[in-house]
Amino acid sequence: MDDKLAQLLREYGIASPEITLLRHNENRTFKVTDTSNGTDYLLRVHDPITTNLAGVQHTRHGIESELQLLRIIAQKSNLVTQVPLTTFSNQLVTPIEVDGHQHNCSILRWIEGRNLTLEDSATADAAYQLGAQVAALHQVFDAYTEVQREDRPDYGIRRIEQMLTQIRRGVELELFSPDHYATVEKTLTLIADRLKSLSPQTAKQGIIHADLNMSNILVTPRGEFVFIDYSLFGFGYRLFDVAMMALNAPKETREHVLKGYFGQESLTQERYAAIEGFMLSAVFGYYAFVMEHEAAHSWIRERMPLLCENRCKPFLNGERIFLSF
């Protein structure tokens, strides 16, 4: 495979690459160092590790829409982002054959940094900055009008229905009991029902990142926060991104994430309730993605009963759970 990747990289003008596999999740990702000049890049082979991670975002049109979004972020904001490269023939996406299957590939500029930790968001200022940065990102998203909805995932109520189907497989795989699934179903159904009755301001939708977990936020040597991996971006509720970012802060500073995002706007009880629902949706989304990944099964067996008991049941009983994660 390395020979094929090296040949592909030459189309981007990288003649002497050193290729290191980083991980295989929604894509196979590699760090590429051009040994002729020391420049680093991120190579992605768009080949998801499980079927639950696959989707329209892996089509050529889907990938191109993501890369165009990265260009928009770089051009129309002060946010640091991974800028895509083009081939000598001005192509953003190139195909490669892996294990008898053809996959699309893309290359991004490398950004040096480490993954965000709870310690990084443990101060009020840092948590506020993370929230404000999500707000700035959403402003940029509003300027990206060329994307076609059919080229990106939909994270609306239909996504909740899809998650239920994917999570139900856990009962068939004997990862958790039917009673636990019933609790999950009640929780996600309540979240969906509440979404249908939200005020327009709380229910605002548009383009969202959809995967703002700690592994997709870098802390650079200069202390900057950089959002990466837009491969799952799509259309959904803006508060979903806010909820995911809130999960990245300890409970002591979590409120400051919301203050950074909303600024002077009031934090109504409706907004809090919606954010709590999206926090649970984000957690369930991860379970759904890895349900068919055997390496995650022992983790699911251990964690699902705790999630149902400590998060879902209090949520169903009307208790506040914003600070319980």
Results as ranks from 00 to 15, higher is better:
D2T: 11
D3W: 06
D3T: 12
K4V: 05
Q7R: 10
Q7G: 01
L8G: 01
R10G: 06
G13M: 09
I14G: 00
S16K: 14
S16W: 06
R23K: 15
R23F: 06
N25G: 11
N25T: 12
N25K: 13
R28S: 07
T29M: 08
K31M: 14
K31T: 07
T35A: 09
S36M: 12
D40E: 02
D40N: 14
L43V: 01
H46T: 13
P48V: 15
P48I: 05
P48F: 06
I49S: 07
T50V: 08
T51C: 09
A54Y: 15
V56Q: 01
V56M: 00
Q57E: 04
G62F: 03
L70Q: 01
I72N: 09
Q75Y: 11
S77A: 03
N78Q: 15
T81W: 01
T87F: 07
S89I: 02
Q91T: 05
V93F: 13
V98S: 05
G100M: 13
G100C: 06
H103T: 06
C105N: 10
L108P: 00
W110F: 02
G113D: 02
G113M: 14
G113I: 10
A122N: 00
A127F: 12
G131E: 03
G131D: 03
A136I: 05
Q139G: 14
F141K: 08
D142Q: 15
A143F: 06
Y144F: 15
E146K: 05
Q148C: 14
E150M: 13
D151W: 15
R159S: 04
I167V: 08
G170A: 01
E172V: 14
L173S: 00
L175Y: 00
D179P: 04
A182V: 11
T183S: 10
V184D: 02
E185T: 01
L188C: 00
T189H: 10
D193W: 04
R194I: 12
L195W: 12
S197A: 15
L198N: 04
L198A: 09
P200C: 03
T202L: 09
A203I: 11
I207G: 01
I208M: 07
S215E: 14
N216C: 04
P221I: 00
R222I: 01
G223E: 08
E224W: 08
F225Y: 00
L232V: 02
F233E: 06
G234Y: 01
G234I: 09
D241V: 08
M245R: 11
L247T: 02
P250H: 09
E255C: 05
V257M: 13
F262D: 09
G263T: 11
L267G: 01
L267D: 04
Q269M: 15
R271K: 13
Y272E: 10
A273M: 14
A274C: 11
A274K: 03
I275N: 02
L280Y: 09
A282V: 02
A282R: 04
A282P: 04
V290F: 01
E292Y: 00
H293S: 07
A295T: 09
A296W: 01
I300F: 06
I300T: 03
R303H: 11
R303L: 05
P305R: 08
L306N: 04
L307K: 06
E309C: 02
R311L: 15
F315H: 02
L316T: 07
N317E: 12
I321T: 03
L323D: 13
L323P: 11
S324K: 15
